[in-house]
Amino acid sequence: MEIPYTVEARPDTGLNNVKLGIWLFLASEVMLFGGLFSSYVLLRVGAVEWPQGAEFLNIPIGTVNTIILIASSVTMVMAYASLKLGDFAKYKTYMLATVLLPVLFLCIKGYEYWEKVSHDHLPSHSTFLAIYWTMTALHGIHIIGGIVVNGYFWGPGSKMWHIKREMFENRVEAAGLYWHFVDLVWIFLFPVLYLL
């Protein structure tokens, strides 16, 4: 017996396994970042003083990074739409952009980190910097994970399109859902850390 509904949707749930799986995973991710955001609020309201993000962080750089990440989310969704239209070449282009944009994001992030380290603004400096480092680093790990997955579906994994087309579309959809979630986390992280 083969495992059913790996590709096609189960009639009564209207889902294939992959899609349900990725949503469940994202639900747990919501709780993971929820725990961190909650800690942030608790530590902030309990603090005697809390710096404005701008005292330590570079808002223009953060803004550029936000735009970059949103752009990669857009290219991701375009890559998936191209697949749906059967345009594999376009998919490749969009997916490449989806892989390269977060690499750029990480380079800029790396520069920011380097700047912090050179000013001795390490996590042990203050609770604000501690939470900044922890949350952005954890988000960064998620970005790296996304780059690996998307890179795989751009490169070696994309061969599957020619063999099992529907399965490949499902996988890209799941990777996309994850990627949008990572973007979504940053959409909250950016104002919380940089602007408030």
């Binding site: 639900a27 929820g34 725990g35 800690s39 390490l122 922890t134």
Partner: peptide, 25 residues
């Protein structure tokens, strides 16, 4: 398990930071 464990994971990361990076969460 799905929804209750992640906050402990967050807490574990914070405590790891407290121990390794000398933060004060």
């Amino acid at each position: 398990l799905l929804l209750a464990f992640p906050p402990l994971e967050a807490a574990g990361v914070l405590q790891l930071m407290d121990r390794v990076a000398d933060t004060s969460f």
